[in-house]
């Protein structure tokens, strides 16, 4: 006779429903060229790319405890790699986007070795210094226009697709593909053994250390992976913009401040948070952008209030209230069925 035993699950009815809902949304988004206008598609691609950056920053700061204010280093780097490879080496832009990820990973290794010497908040400013070094460095490259930047030559643009419509569809699909890939990578990474170790580090660095979890190595891997994917995202961003300057490529406001607001408002340390945050950010931006600087002040105030009053963000409030988890990461113990 066997005793009924407790069972351990990760998924729940909510997460299974969310998975099905997610697939439907993905199918609808994939067919956007059939139903969406040109401007809507541009906006949606931008939203996807911001969501990718937000998810990456969330993995870095919310899970690995590496609070960076210098991810614009990799966004800008990816953008410049795309321009350099296509202009100088005649590499196809889509291939160049992939190469941007590889080169982003390659450059993040020595950077990590250097700035991992700084802890906590000083690490944050250290990442900013790196981004500034990249900005000032690329501004010295006269072949890429120096400080005033350069545009993507027409033949490079044409090589994606000859017609403008097809080109826009391609970049849209690439942005959608990238965000799906980033979300999948973040999700699978967090479900892996190393991902669980990361959560342990976040919850208690001392205890995690004494359990033999190699904190340095886990943080290093996350830093390199997010660097690579941020570079890839940057390449796509500037493929859409068709023009790059050092100030735009390495803008702390565009690629870090907004991203941090998205994650903080949505809920740091959850996969759902950046998704909610991105939707809220774009809703705010589309309604308040006419206010100009006032809009940015409002965004800053909202972020501070959220950080002080609801440090787990909007998704944290939802989760505390209803206990739902759309991306099942934690284990749940279910009592045996009678």
């Amino acid at each position: 006779m066997s005793r009924p035993s407790h069972t351990v699950h990760r998924s729940s009815p909510a997460s299974r429903a969310a998975a099905i809902f997610g697939l439907i949304v993905l199918a609808i988004l994939a067919t956007a060229p059939l139903w969406a206008g040109r401007a809507d598609m541009r906006l949606m691609s931008e939203l996807f790319l911001y969501l990718a950056l937000a998810s990456l920053w969330n993995l870095l700061a919310g899970y690995a405890g590496l609070v960076s204010v210098g991810q614009q280093a990799y966004v800008g780097f990816g953008g410049y790699v795309l321009f350099a490879l296509t202009i100088f080496l005649d590499i196809h832009p889509i291939l160049a986007i992939g190469l941007a990820a590889i080169l982003g990973a390659a450059i993040s290794v020595p950077v990590a070795l250097l700035i991992f010497r700084l802890r906590g908040a000083y690490f944050a400013i250290g990442t900013w210094v790196i981004a500034e070094v990249f900005r000032l460095g690329f501004a010295q490259v006269q072949a890429l226009g120096g400080g005033s930047g350069t545009s993507l030559p027409v033949q490079v643009v044409r090589s994606i697709a000859s017609g403008r419509t097809m080109r826009e569809w391609t970049t849209y699909w690439m942005a959608l593909g990238l965000v799906v890939a980033v979300l999948a990578i973040v999700y699978l990474f967090l479900r892996s053994r190393r991902g669980l170790a990361l959560t342990a580090i976040r919850d208690n660095e001392l205890a995690a250390g004494s359990l033999g979890i190699d904190i340095w190595r886990s943080q290093f891997i996350v830093y390199v992976v997010t660097g690579a994917l941020a570079a890839c995202t940057g390449a796509l961003i500037f493929l859409q913009k068709l023009r790059i300057t050092p100030d735009a490529a390495f803008s702390v406001n565009d690629w870090t401040a907004f991203v941090i607001f998205i994650v903080v408002i949505g809920g740091i340390g959850t996969i759902e948070g950046p998704i909610i945050g991105t939707l809220i950010y774009f809703a705010l931006r589309e309604t308040l952008a006419d206010l100009g600087t006032t809009y940015l002040i409002i965004l800053g105030v909202v972020a501070i209030i959220v950080m002080l009053k609801a440090p787990n963000g909007l998704w944290g409030l939802v989760r505390a209230r209803w206990g739902v988890e759309l991306f099942p990461l934690s284990y749940r113990v279910a009592a045996p069925k009678k």
Binding site: A61, V67, A121, T293, L296, I297, G300, A303, I304, L308
Partner: peptide, 27 residues
């Protein structure tokens, strides 16, 4: 209110403050 021992709150709140000051001055 941010000094809870966690490094994120002070960092993010002062970051928000930085954006507010910058844009208020711009205004």
């Amino acid at each position: 209110g941010t000094l809870t021992g966690d490094i994120l709150p002070p960092l993010l709140v002062t970051f928000g403050l930085s954006v507010i000051i910058q844009n208020a001055l711009l205004e």
